[in-house]
Design a protein around this nucleic acid. Structure first.
Length: 585
DNA sequence: GCCGTTTTCGGCCCGACTGTTTTCAGTCG
């Protein structure tokens, strides 16, 4: 059975970091930080840590040293890390989880543990309510109230928003703030600007003249969306909004600080720490107010983000890459890839019509897309017959659809609509339609819609080996809030590459499948991707932005994405596979 | 615990807000 040892280790290192924070010895402060970094590194590793160990590549990673390697080896050999087993005894198990709650810092928890002898979450809540904690020195009623509030917030925020949902909420707030003419610049910052797949809080950055700040902050906290004000000061405010009980932070800065503030509030934290560290080694100091020469305090950048990076000797880094996954080193060498952009997309190759479960006829789709998008082609890819709930198409149905598309294309004057199918991959890996009918199509997406509980690597590999399959649809099958993906090995990346099969980046907001980790891994071995919306209605075509965000976070350039190319180029890709399998001369 | 064209020892990002304080610690991002 597939086992994610990277994740297991990351969890242990993260817990060890928290235990050290809880213990709170000064000399352990930075040890905790290091463990935290190691946990992040392990989680981001594109391949099994054991392979890194064997190839000797683990010790080359900046931030992983000899002691970490020893611990990882110990875990692989014995299934345990003795240091971790020792540390675990020093803190009540509930307290590790409690440390994630706003207002529950390590210092606070340690005193509650030591002075009141509390060891469980339940007891702690009781002590908050009966006044025992408020009576501790340095604690007070307000602090206790905030801790109880933190508990509530934590429970509500356990469900993170998916990117699309957060973008919609964030953008609507930005629109409302734009009513204020005092606002010079406004932008969504934080993980939303980095386009992470799930979002906790929403951050909004605004620039304005000093004297207008108060007005802007007051306007913000009094928006009808606001349910509760969490904090409010001269330069920032935090509120809880009604939509999905989200926390939204607004920060107001001066126009000449826009670049440094945007850089700072975009994060990630790891990216900023690393960047500032490098700045420091060059005698510079970076804060949200600008880049300064440390010795003189002279400001040398801050108005634009480009200027901030340039002052430290780096290329501007696209927000989607700012996760401290190597982008800083490459930016110093000025060798960042030029990432794919939404405007590079030339067509959508996964679209459903009323022939199965889509909301619109092919005719209507043509009109809508040609009016709203500058696409050169789209592929109609309805379901095949075994997907009964969607009234999937039989061979005969598909032949009739092909005829209709021919007629419609004639009206347009060129082959705008490509003939496609989303054909089901059956349990044994064979396809739901005959090769004969598939051979008549321009584009064949093969997808799994059944048997999610088994390892489906074999089915996908077999589908890749069909000469007519041009892409694998939503390859890992996950749906946010419904199910995790089925187990599947990264062997499919190699097979996709070798067989000349594209892998889909499905841009449906609750799928985002492949995700950025898979995409980055695939890109590194030369897999071609296709970004598709899997549209079932007009509104769905806008999801392309989500798919492009995944590709960008996976470091993809235009070259990695098939549907940035003309149809002629795509046809070459399709024909190359058919030739390879000997079904086309 | 990690790291080093200033260092193998002595550093490790930086500032705002809150509450409980009379000058600051803790927490957060």
């Amino acid at each position: 059975m597939y086992r994610n040892i990277n994740k297991e280790l990351a969890k242990i290192f993260r817990e060890m970091a928290m235990i050290y924070e809880f213990i709170g010895k000064d000399e352990d402060k930075f040890r905790a930080l290091t463990y935290q970094r190691v946990a992040n590194l392990l989680e981001d590793l594109p391949d099994d840590v054991r392979n890194y160990l064997i190839s000797g590549k683990l010790e080359e990673i900046r931030g992983i040293g000899s002691h970490t390697i020893e611990k990882i080896k110990e875990y692989i050999q014995t299934g345990k890390i003795s240091k971790y087993e020792e540390l675990k005894k020093l803190v009540p198990p509930d307290f590790l989880q409690l440390m994630e709650i706003p207002g529950f810092g390590p210092k606070t928890l340690k005193r509650i543990y030591e002075e009141l002898g509390i060891t469980t979450k339940e007891e702690l809540i009781k002590a908050l309510k009966d006044g025992r904690i408020a009576s501790l020195k340095g604690f007070g009623e307000k602090k206790v109230k905030n801790m109880l509030k933190g508990l509530e917030l934590y429970e509500a925020s356990q469900k993170r928003l998916i990117l699309w949902e957060a973008l919609e909420i964030g953008r609507s707030l930005v629109e409302k703030l734009k009513n204020l003419k005092e606002i010079k610049n406004i932008e969504l910052a934080g993980s939303l600007r980095r386009k992470k797949e799930t979002i906790g809080d929403i951050d909004i950055l605004v620039s304005a003249n000093q004297q207008d700040r108060e007005k802007i902050i007051n306007y913000f906290v009094n928006l009808e969306d606001v349910k509760e004000i969490l904090a409010k000061g001269d330069t920032k405010a935090s509120v809880l909004i009604k939509q999905r009980e989200r926390q939204v932070d607004l920060r107001v800065i001066n126009p000449d600080e826009w670049g440094s503030a945007l850089q700072y509030f975009t994060g990630s934290k790891e990216h900023n720490v690393h960047m500032r560290d490098i700045a420091k080694s060059k005698g510079l100091k970076v804060s949200e107010y600008g880049v300064f020469i440390a010795s003189t305090g002279e400001k040398i950048a801050g108005e634009t983000e480009e200027g901030v990076y340039e002052a430290i000797g780096m290329q501007w880094i696209p927000p989607e890459l700012r996760e401290d996954r190597g982008e800083i080193e490459i930016a110093l060498e000025k060798k960042l890839p030029k990432l794919v952009e939404l405007s590079d997309i030339k067509g959508d190759l996964h679209v459903h019509s009323t022939w199965t479960d889509g909301m619109n006829t092919i005719q209507q789709i043509i009109e809508f897309v040609r009016e709203r998008y500058k696409y050169e082609y789209i592929a109609i890819t309805d379901h095949s017959k075994s997907v009964r709930v969607a009234h999937g198409l039989s061979e005969e149905d598909l032949l009739r659809q092909i005829e209709e598309i021919d007629k419609l294309n004639k009206l347009i004057g060129f082959d705008f609509i490509k003939k496609g199918i989303e054909v089901d991959i059956l349990l044994d890996g064979s396809l739901d339609l005959s090769d004969e009918v598939l051979s008549k199509l321009d584009w064949v997406v093969a997808s799994i819609h059944t048997h999610f509980n088994r390892d489906n690597t074999d089915r996908i590999i077999k589908a890749c080996e069909n000469p007519y399959v041009t892409a694998i649809g939503h390859p890992t099958g996950r749906i946010f809030g419904q199910r995790e993906g089925y187990p599947v090995s990264d062997e499919i990346l190699k097979v996709a590459k070798e067989t000349g099969t594209a892998l889909e980046i499905n841009a449906q907001p609750n799928r985002m499948d492949l995700n950025e980790v898979w995409v980055k891994k695939g890109k590194e071995i030369g897999v071609k991707f296709v970004i598709s919306t899997d549209s079932h209605s007009f509104g769905n075509f806008a999801y392309m932005e989500i798919g492009v965000a995944i590709a960008r976070r996976g470091w993809c350039t235009k070259e990695d994405i098939l549907n940035t190319k003309s149809w002629k180029e795509i046809q070459k890709f399709v024909n190359a596979k058919r030739k390879k399998f000997g079904v086309l001369k």
